[in-house]
Amino acid sequence: MLSRTADNLYWLARYVERAEYLARILEATQRLTALPLAYVGETNEWETAVATAGCSNAFFAAHEEANEHTVVDFLAFSPSNPSSIRSCFEAARLNARAVRTALTVEMWEAINGTWLELKRFGNKPDSREEVMRFLQWVQVSSLRYDGSAYRTMLRNDAYWFSRLGVYMERADNTARILDVKYHLLLPADEHVGGPLDYFQWSGILRSVSALTAYHWVYRESLKPWLVADLLILNEQLPRSLASCYENLEQNLDRIANAYGRQGPAQRQARAIRTKLNNSRMDDIFQSGLHEFLGGFIADNNNLGFAIGKQYLS
C-alpha cells in the first residue's frame, strides 16, 4: 500500500484516540473540581488537566489563567489549538477523506457523521450540562469509529497500521497522565494519604476508564501503588502501557510477516515490551517513577519515528 495511505490511517486512529482521551480528562477534572476543597486539596486541577493533555506551553501562550472556562474552551473547542477535540476530529476527517478508499463505508460514516455532528455543537456550548453531553458524545463517537474499524476492516496492513496509531497514542496518553500525577502514586511502604488523595487516584483511573477494572483486578480499596501497577504493568487493562506494547509488538509482527521483513521498528517495540515484562513495581519506585515514565515517553516517541521511517514516508 502507499506509504501516505498508511500514514493517514495511522494518524486518523491517533487523532480519534486523542479526542477520546481529552474528553476523559475534562470529564474527570470536572468531577474533581466539583468536590469540596477539603477532598481534593489546593491544586488547580484545571492547570493539571492542561499539563496532562501535554499542551501547557501553548495554553499559557493563549490564556493567563487556567480555569474551567479557559481550559474547556482550549482543550475541547479551540480551533487554534491543534490538539483540541475539535481540531482532532477535523484532522481525523481530513485524513479519512485522503484515504477514503482504504476505509470501509462504516468507518467513513462514523468519522464523517462525527464531523457533521461537531458543527451542530457550535463554537462552545453555554451550559455545563451541554459540555457534559458533548464530552459523552466524543467518547461515543470514538467508540463507534474504533468499533467499526474492528468489525469491518480486512485484517491486512491497512488494519495493522491503523491499530499501531491507536496503541501508540494510548501508550503516550497513559504515560503522560501518570507522569503528571506521579507524586501521588507512592510505593507500598510510604504513608498513605487521606481522602484527599483517594479522589485524585480515582480521577486518574477514570481518565483511562479503569475505575471499575481496578476493583475487579485487585478487589481492594484504592492503593496508589496498585493504581500504578494497573496502568503500567497489567496486560489485562487495555490502556496500560504493557497492554499497549503487547498490541504494538503483535501488529508490527503481522506487518513484518506479511512483508517478509523485520526492521528497526519491530526490534524497538520488542525491547520496550521486554523491559515492561521484566519490571516490577517495587523496582520502578526504587529507581524513580518519574524517571521511569520520562524514559518510557522518550522510548515511545522513538518507536514512532522508527515506524515513520520504516513504513510511512
Partner: peptide, 19 residues
C-alpha cells in the same frame, strides 16, 4: 489513489512509495 508526493522518477521510470 496517488498524489504527486507519492510518485518519484528514477532512470526515467515512475515509482510510487509504498510501505
Amino acid at each position: 489513489l496517488v498524489e504527486g508526493g507519492d510518485l518519484f522518477v528514477k532512470n526515467s521510470i515512475v515509482y510510487m512509495r509504498t510501505t
